[in-house]
Computed example of a mutant assay.
Amino acid sequence: MTTHMPPGWYPDPECRIHGNTAARERWWDGNQWTTQTRLAASEAGVHPNQFTPMAPSPQMAESVSGTGARSSRPRSLALVAMGVVIGVALTASATLFFDDADGAKKRASSTPRVSDGGEEETPGPRPGLDSPKPEKEILNPTSGVKLPVLDGWKQGTPNEAGGDVIEFGKESPCRDDKQASCVMGHASIHRSQEDRGKTTMTLKSIASRDLGKFAENTYGGSGVTRKVVKRESLDLMGQDAYRTRWQISDRSETLGFLESVAFASPHEDGSILILRMGSDAASEAPSIEFTELILKRIQEVPRTDRGYEGTTI
């Protein structure tokens, strides 16, 4: 008597041959073994009665035990079909794996850390990756020169270039601009818009040009005359320098004296600095000869004003 086996999943006879009866199951279509296999239900954690798989089509069926009709489709095509199915499954699995891994990374990076006290912690920079680059140190050229405070003079507020300033006397309305305040004696350090190695102008030309601006700002340009009373090259703090002095007068009297000295920065950074000095001709004003003391006592000092280049003139 022959027992008829209904279609279903049964222990794979090939595995039984190799002594591993529980590892894999093969589909029996009611007449013959097919090429469709799966992990045994006990291995995959699935109860055999949870679902009934669709029986393979006759074209996919193929006898393994040697009994029953063999499919007319060549075996190579069946194997290719299986390879395509397996390839698609592996691709889908890999895509899900990497997508999930990428999502986990994003979730980890966006999820704030919580300290022991229960407060959220902001992730700090990663050394070598997120660490901010150190800013380039900028030194103000004018801050490296210090003017001496002479007897009767006072330290003034640094000018718009950040340069040192000394003053003599009380502030009073300026001659040309009554809204502005002037003093009877003044000395200050400025930075020229010209730099050594980048300009064709000489120190003499720079000093003369600046003196014109200095005179215009101090006494105005209308109704006054300018007379050159001193021009010379000199050494200032070990650097080349050139000085020009003017006597400023109106039609009736001398108003004062102004002087500009152009010199290379003692810090040898390529910048050209300008020393402006001036005094009124009034009897209570200091003699213009104070400039000689300034030139003798002016000093190079460490530049401490960082992050500011200074306004040029």
Rank of each mutant, 00 (worst) to 15 (best):
P48S: 06
D151A: 12
S271E: 07
C182G: 02
P125V: 05
N217R: 15
I298D: 00
S72N: 13
Q239G: 06
S181C: 04
S115F: 06
S279H: 04
F263W: 01
T225D: 11
S283P: 03
P112L: 02
L96M: 11
R16M: 14
P127K: 02
A215V: 07
R70G: 09
S93A: 15
L150Q: 04
S279K: 01
E284K: 12
R196H: 09
S188W: 00
R26T: 08
S287L: 07
S57I: 07
E135R: 14
G30P: 05
D102C: 10
V228E: 12
T254G: 02
Y308I: 04
I248C: 00
V85C: 08
K230M: 11
V80H: 09
R196K: 14
S271I: 00
L129N: 06
T111K: 07
R231L: 08
G270M: 02
T254N: 07
V85Q: 14
S131P: 03
T67M: 12
P13W: 04
S283N: 10
W33N: 05
L293A: 14
R126K: 15
V145I: 13
T67H: 13
K170R: 11
R73I: 15
R243P: 02
P134D: 06
T218F: 00
S222F: 12
L211D: 00
K136V: 13
S143W: 01
E160S: 12
A108R: 10
S192N: 02
L236G: 02
H18C: 08
A55P: 09
H4V: 13
E309D: 12
D210A: 12
Q50D: 14
I298G: 00
Q32W: 05
T218G: 01
A281N: 10
V88Y: 08
T21W: 09
E194A: 10
D100I: 05
N217Q: 14
I138P: 03
E232P: 03
G103V: 05
M60G: 06
S115P: 03
W33H: 09
M82C: 11
F214I: 03
P123V: 05
D280K: 07
A41I: 01
L96C: 09
G68S: 06
A282Y: 10
V224P: 00
A78E: 08
A161L: 01
G223D: 15
V114Q: 09
F97L: 15
G124R: 08
Y308M: 06
D151P: 05
E268T: 10
W153N: 00
T199L: 04
S71Q: 05
V84M: 12
R24G: 04
H47N: 12
T202L: 06
F290C: 04
A161G: 10
S109L: 13
Q155D: 07
P141C: 05
R231H: 08
S205L: 09
G103L: 10
A89Y: 08
R243C: 08
R303Q: 11
E43K: 15
D116L: 14
Y219L: 02
L90C: 13
E121I: 15
G212Q: 13
A180T: 08
F51R: 11
I17R: 15
G220S: 04
A281K: 03
Q32E: 09
H190T: 06
